[in-house]
Simulated assay, not measured.
Amino acid sequence: MKSFLSGMPECKLGLSYPSTSSKTPKGTEKPSVENTLAEFQFHQCVRLRQFNQNKAISFVPPDGQFELMRYHFKATQKPPFTLYPVVPKPGPDSQVLNIMVTIKSNYLSKYSATNVKVNIPVPKNTTGCSTNSSISNRAKYSPETNSVVWTIPKFSGNSEHTIDVKVKLSKKEKHDDWQRPPITVSFKLSMLSMSGLQVKFLQIQETGNYKSGK
């Protein structure tokens, strides 16, 4: 959080917590999502007594940027994306390596991730790559990082995409020691909280002649 407020106004942050209980189709209770939120840690400006009483966070923000709170989410839940890679290990005399990667989104269809980048490592003796994907083919081979970077500008929820990568290998260099490094994914996904914890409101308690402003 970064404060642009002048003076010492008191602020109140209201949070929307996950439901305290739920039922399975057979009517049996399953663990509460709220009970999976633990280990709250607050900045020293937070009034802890009020939080313990009504779960509202009251504080007088310090100047500049600061971390208001952090918490630990203990529930077992699917990550935003699941990868299904097929990456065979090339033989000692292989000149071509065929890689296939499918990425599936696990969030609801009303959400969309943007600027999704899938980084697919390739052997160091790669001389070139050709790609074919189920969505706009924005994939490039990066010799500097020994990887193919597959960019998906917008990724809707409950959907999946697949890319086929044909890797050309040099005969002059060996690739026996290539350990198939992990595939990494970076993305931006706004308005979605995997823990279910969301901000309801942020109030500035104005007193006297104080006027809030940036």
Rank of each mutant, 00 (worst) to 15 (best):
K2A: 10
K12C: 07
L13I: 06
G14L: 11
S22G: 15
K23M: 15
P25D: 09
K30W: 10
S32N: 01
V33W: 14
F42S: 03
F42L: 00
Q44Y: 11
Q44M: 08
C45E: 05
V46A: 04
Q50C: 04
N52R: 12
A56V: 09
A56N: 15
S58Q: 13
F59R: 06
F59T: 14
V60P: 03
P61K: 03
G64A: 09
Y71T: 12
H72G: 11
H72W: 07
H72V: 12
A75L: 07
A75Q: 10
K78R: 12
P80W: 08
T82Q: 14
T82F: 09
Y84F: 15
V87Q: 08
P90T: 11
N98R: 13
I103M: 14
N106C: 04
Y107N: 02
Y107A: 04
L108A: 13
S109G: 00
K110Q: 15
S112Y: 11
K117Q: 12
V118D: 08
I120T: 01
V122F: 12
P123C: 03
N125A: 04
N125I: 02
G128T: 06
T131Y: 11
S133K: 03
S134E: 07
A139G: 10
P143G: 00
T145V: 02
T145N: 14
N146W: 01
S147L: 06
S147H: 10
V148I: 11
V149F: 09
W150T: 02
W150V: 04
T151M: 15
E160S: 10
H161M: 02
I163L: 01
V165I: 15
K174I: 01
H175P: 05
H175Y: 06
R180P: 09
P182W: 03
F187L: 07
K188C: 05
K188V: 13
L189F: 13
S193T: 15
S193V: 09
S195D: 06
L197G: 03
Q198G: 08
V199T: 07
K200V: 13
K200N: 15
F201K: 02
Q203N: 12
I204S: 00
Q205R: 09
E206R: 12
E206W: 01
G208H: 07
Y210A: 03
K211M: 10
S212I: 01
K214C: 07
